[in-house]
């Protein structure tokens, strides 16, 4: 075999071995690479409660209540299956609103309320002009109306 072919083989084998090792390592560590836990994971007790961790999901509709002091906020984080009540005092990011994705950092209290020390907004990969968003909302409202009043009635 020529030395050039030998080098090609070596590089090829090396890369293949490295790829396999990385895949195995990533697979083994996949739980630790999770940036946030979901309300369902908390409900199934798969999250260590005594530690600080991140809770992520959507801010449940009609769940945001502002405290009388003006800084404390109560809201619920949901993954549409389960919801966890959250209490937070501090500045909220601009994108924080009901129905939006959110990641909070804090600890779960004994009473099941998540006391957050930090709230980060998570946004989806959709971008569009305000008019387009308005048009979509309009279409959804129209569709909802036709569903409420099925054909033939």
């Amino acid at each position: 075999m020529k030395t050039r072919q030998k080098r090609l083989m070596l590089v090829g084998f090396g890369l293949a071995a490295l790829l396999a090792i990385t895949a195995l390592v990533l697979n083994a560590f996949s739980d630790n690479l999770v940036f946030f836990h979901t309300p369902s994971e908390i409900a199934s007790n798969s999250v260590p409660l005594e530690r600080t961790f991140r809770l992520g999901g959507l801010v449940e509709d009609n769940s945001v209540r502002r405290g009388e002091d003006g800084v404390t906020v109560h809201f619920k984080v949901t993954d549409t299956a389960k919801a966890v009540p959250v209490i937070y005092s501090g500045v909220l990011p601009n994108l924080f609103r009901e129905g939006q994705g959110v990641v909070t950092v804090g600890q779960l209290q004994e009473d099941g309320v998540f006391r957050a020390t930090q709230v980060m907004a998570r946004h989806d990969e959709e971008y569009m002009p305000p008019e387009a968003a308005e048009a979509i909302k309009q279409a959804q409202r129209e569709r909802a109306r036709t569903v409420e009043r099925p054909e033939g009635l």
């Binding site: 990533l26 996949s30 690479l33 999770v34 940036f35 946030f36 836990h37 979901t38 992520g56 990641v103 980060m120 998570r122 946004h123 989806d124 990969e125 959709e126 971008y127």
Partner: peptide, 11 residues
Amino acid sequence: QWWNTLHQGAS
């Protein structure tokens, strides 16, 4: 795609 991240998916 593989993990929960703060970063959103690809547009």
